[in-house]
Nucleic acid binder design. Sequence first.
DNA 1: TATTGACTATGACGTTACGTCATAGATTAT
DNA 2: ATAATCTATGACGTAACGTCATAGTCAATA
Lengths: 252, 252
Amino acid sequence: MYKVKEAAELAGVSVRTLHHYDRMGLLTPKKGGNGYRYYDDNDFIILQQILFFKELDFSLQKIKEILQSPDFDEQHALQQHKKILLEKKARLEKVIRSVDQSIASYKGGETMTPKERFEPFDMQKIEEHRKKFAKEVEQRWGDTDAYKESAKRTSAYSKDDWKKIHAENEVIDKHLVQLMDQEPGDEEVQKWIDAKRQHITKYFYPCSIEIFRGLADMYVNDPRFTNNIDKVKQGYAAFVSKAMHVYCDQRT
Amino acid sequence: MYKVKEAAELAGVSVRTLHHYDRMGLLTPKKGGNGYRYYDDNDFIILQQILFFKELDFSLQKIKEILQSPDFDEQHALQQHKKILLEKKARLEKVIRSVDQSIASYKGGETMTPKERFEPFDMQKIEEHRKKFAKEVEQRWGDTDAYKESAKRTSAYSKDDWKKIHAENEVIDKHLVQLMDQEPGDEEVQKWIDAKRQHITKYFYPCSIEIFRGLADMYVNDPRFTNNIDKVKQGYAAFVSKAMHVYCDQRT
DNA sequence: TATTGACTATGACGTTACGTCATAGATTAT
DNA sequence: ATAATCTATGACGTAACGTCATAGTCAATA
């Protein structure tokens, strides 16, 4: 039988935390006539379980559900939770790479312009764009397996994966830049535009014509995106956008 | 000149977010006679900078400092911030491995007992223990370089690092188990106890005699820890604890 | 035994970055 | 002119406690 402070010290948490758990009905120790909380061995076991799931980054609400529902599918919950953690990690890795690039820019010489600050984010913009459409898709077709699949895929790339993705994209851009004197409807141009779409489909999500057209618009309408793309070559954004529209028109 | 909603949509944030930034003085657009907020190109540049640093996981307060202090050492801030991110990532990876182990335990057969739930956490317990001491150390010697160094080290291990650390530890345990019929003060035993201390020093923190003694006590007093250690062999925790005490006694 | 110091309880506000109403005035479209 | 849409401000809600503030309880000391 330990009183709060002792119990808290043994478990390595704060007194306030135990108060909190008590109040929310997560861990309710016996109470003496004086109103004091007394923690016994059983309470400690529960507390350990709480801390366990907390380590796994579950919310206290979820933990309450887990510990208080005897038929809770813990296995499934863990699987689900792992996915979330992997997504978190992927996001973190993106962020770290961005910071790295920022640092590198500094070392490379003069201060970054505001525009340059956004360079590492081209792929993120694509992601944002996808999410917008994904919301619509979700509302239209619900939480289909295909949709889930694509959503899963995008958040599992490693550092090296991203490098590869970027590299492949550069190849496509290089070819298209060399074709900028051609008509947007030129066969060669259209071949590479198709490659662009395949690239997105392969690494991000099934890029439907609708979505592709949306991307084309974004290329010229979103200044952040335009600037980014035009870095490849002046006027490249407009050219690609036109070519993409031709591509989409041919397929509807 | 865009009104809030339009501006919000262009930037991909909510109207409430822009209200919020305005109120906290982070992004204050021009206001019309009707009290409406009007965002111009310059506001968008600022907003982009805000979003950039937000991606980097800075708090809005920090962002305000960065954007409003002309002599802010952005370079240094980025370096510092990267460290924090790497620590975050390391913690995340720990958690993911823990979840993996939990899942594996399920697949390995019967349901986990509460005790077994804590198995993956031996290293974390060591970490907790270190933190306790670290706090004292910090109060005694302040934020010294040596302390910072050791703190940095522990949160930078990769998946593979941990594997190696575990493997090395197992080797030590294996040898000690085979020496369990010897006296705790036996020379061979003491050699491996020293190896144990070196192991901790190498991978975690300079393991002083004081701290090592604390660990010895923990081995037998913290049931979570004891159970974990006794999995190696029944009675192993007590044996190691005794041997560690002998080791420490010899050195004070 | 009275007092002091350590501990306990409850209550309530603070934190972060907004989300989500609620209320009310302004603008725009029909 | 009326309705639909947009805008503003204000205020409460969120997660998991931290941090007082106030007041009662317990154990040791003078």
